[in-house]
């Protein structure tokens, strides 16, 4: 992937497929390190599935047998000297607290570090495609942060869906303004 934000889009699509109702996307950055943590309350994975999920020849899809989402994200992390870890609680074993956490860390100074890219587009794309799922996004850069929680927007919007074009435009502009405020480039 050309941007880490595309990996993030891809990984969160897994969360929505696992019927998550809430997906938290956290990015934490300082001078040297970038960490991405994606936490969902979806159906989770069994230990067996979890073991095979970073294998590029493991996938749940039926159109073909190769699943590249997690392996690509892991590669992006490992090629900077960073790492990717996944913990998951399957709904059968943890009926109350099921879900998956994907945690990836990157060394920003490494020559093979993939830039984050257009994270705002990733967030708006996710909301457009999954207007009934809630997303909590936080991007912390040193001491400042950008955040968006669709549950708060829903309270204002009542029954107007989040994939309404004007709402999506508001979300995009709101995030861009927050980024401008913290002078993130």
């Amino acid at each position: 992937m050309k941007e880490l934000s595309l990996n993030i889009l891809d990984i969160v699509e897994n969360s929505t497929k696992a019927k998550a109702e809430l997906v938290e996307i956290e990015i934490i950055e300082d001078k040297t390190t970038l960490t991405v943590r994606i936490t969902d309350d979806g159906s989770g994975m069994s230990e067996e599935t979890l073991l095979s999920v970073t294998d590029p020849f493991y996938t749940t899809r039926t159109t073909r047998k190769v699943g590249m989402g997690i392996p690509l994200f892991r590669l992006a992390a490992e090629q900077t000297g960073g790492s990717l870890t996944i913990t998951s609680h399957h709904i059968d074993d943890y009926p109350e607290e099921h879900g998956t956490v994907v945690n990836a860390s990157f060394d920003k100074s490494h020559i093979d570090f993939t830039p984050l890219g257009d994270i705002v587009s990733t967030i708006t794309t996710l909301i457009q495609g999954h207007p009934d799922v809630d997303f909590k996004f936080t991007h912390t850069v040193d001491d400042s942060s950008v955040s968006l929680d669709t549950r708060e927007l829903r309270e204002v919007l009542d029954d107007i869906p989040l994939d309404n074009f004007e709402v999506l435009l508001w979300i995009k502009d709101n995030l861009i303004e927050q980024y401008n405020k913290i002078k993130y480039k």
Partner: peptide
């Protein structure tokens, strides 16, 4: 919008 689509520029 699967991995293949995203990597190829679907966003």
């Amino acid at each position: 919008m699967a991995t293949c689509g995203i990597a190829a520029g679907a966003r």
